[in-house]
Amino acid sequence: MAMDPEEVEFLAEKKLVSIIPTFNSNVIHLISGDIGPFRASLPVNVPLWIAVNLKQQQKCKIQPPDWMDVDRLQELKEEEKMSRTFIKMPSEHYMIEAKLLLGCASDDIPRADEIRTVIKDIWDIRMSKIRSSVDVLVKGAGTYAAVDNLTLMEINSIRPLLPHALDQLYRMRKTRKSAGTQSQNSSTFLSMNVNSKNTPSKS
């Protein structure tokens, strides 16, 4: 079962963002909780979807999250390059937050273009790691793998391909088992800590 990118975005839009409103308003009661009160030029936290909406109506300025900073992101990019495994991103939904905030509030975010580029670079590095890990996982006929620190958007990018490939391998193992071939345990550890079963070649 796949998840639409819109659904991943929906989940990410609950993330709180600090805004500086240009209007005054009492507390607003929403089903997911209260927001406000809003006082002009006093920062207040609201869910991402509200921040984007208010910004589009030019009713607030966005305060970018701490991590949305070129130097910080450059460091993360280097760290991601050096690391064999996936590093923990500063936000579980960094890609969506960046896309939405840079999309509507590039005037509130210093060096927005550079930020966009570095985030894209980090995404690309991680996607290439995912591709090589999936390759090893499938070739090694893995039975499970750790996907720690992958964000939902990244997991979604290997769905449904990876689960389907593993489903097929599972079927093949089952068939082979009923055909009576021996198999042996062995584990490989990759960027995705893969536990795999290899069938030794017959001597």
């Binding site: 793998a145 750790a146 996907v147 689960p163 593993l166 599972y170 089952k174 088992k177 536990n195 079963k197």
Partner: peptide, 21 residues
């Protein structure tokens, strides 16, 4: 793992993420 032999055991840590059957 589909082979019904040598059952593999794995421990999950809090917040760990896996792909698994």
């Amino acid at each position: 793992d589909g082979t019904e032999q040598e059952e593999d055991l794995v421990d999950f840590k809090t917040d760990s993420q896996l792909i698994i059957s």
